[in-house]
Design a protein around this nucleic acid. Structure first.
Lengths: 147, 147
DNA sequence: TATTGTTATACTCTATAACTATA
DNA sequence: TATAGTTATAGAGTATAACAATA
């Protein structure tokens, strides 16, 4: 009889459940952090992507946030309605629209971003360095098997 | 100077990114598996929850899938429109509606569930037993810090 | 009074594909 | 022809709160 060196028959199902639960727990914790900002998660995602840049094209934002271009138009529209970003047609290539934070958007970014990071950091601080390293390695490995 | 035994200052940010990317990679892979079934992910989630049960109440389905009751009504409506489930008012407590798979729903469950599991298993089979165990432990630890 | 599920409201995001302007 | 972004289409899920039926 050959001993399997790979993962045994059905052992992955509990791991799958843990993946989903762990992510849901994080996502829900993260979303709670945006309470009172008026931002949805995708909107915050875009705001954080634009922070500390001189503006990015739709293409660049889409690549970073994994929001597809059709959806991104709507997300940017809603951020523009709140005067948090503005569109600027690029001079080099007039097909390209750069999205830039307004003063108001920059102020919101500077308020919400560090707060959200420290809010999340508090939970990661519960981990030892070794645990954090092990988790990073595990997540990276998971990422590779699904790519 | 006191040496920090917990996670160092900003080291958690890359881990956070890995968590999001790993989950997104899995979610997108998983969603691809439902191609051709006519099911959305939440619908498949409900179908899989109902499989091998004699029917569950909205409350039970909501607890298992983390779909809130208002949303669940719509999801069940769409599954009912496709004749995959039916509603049955409980005799014990007439406030309770049990959701039960129809014959058609059961056939779909029996076709899609094992296929989806084996589709995902192929990826987990790329892991050694030790890797799988480490990943499970990491995910569980992540889950606990966000709960 | 409390609980179960429904309904209504109002958004927000999703994928997909056709379309416009520009390169 | 190819690319960047917009628009149209058609869902689908979200939170929230008021509601009806039942306990």
């Amino acid at each position: 009889m050959i001993t399997a060196s790979n993962a045994a028959k059905q052992d992955f199902l509990p791991v799958l459940r843990e993946l989903v639960r762990a992510y849901q727990a994080f996502a829900s914790f993260d979303a709670n952090g945006y309470q009172g900002t008026g931002l949805t998660v995708p909107q915050a995602d875009v705001l954080f992507t634009l922070g500390n840049t001189a503006g990015l094209s739709f293409k660049e934002i889409g690549e970073s946030t994994l929001i597809t271009k059709g959806t991104l138009t709507g997300v940017i529209d809603r951020l523009e309605d709140k005067s948090l970003v503005k569109r600027r047609v690029s001079n080099e290539d007039r097909r390209v629209t750069k999205v830039v934070l307004t003063k108001k958007g920059m102020r919101l970014f500077e308020e919400v971003f560090p707060r959200q990071i420290s809010y999340i950091k508090k939970r990661f601080d519960l981990l030892s360095k070794a645990e954090l390293a092990a988790i990073k390695k595990s997540l990276h490995r998971l990422h590779t098997i699904f790519s």
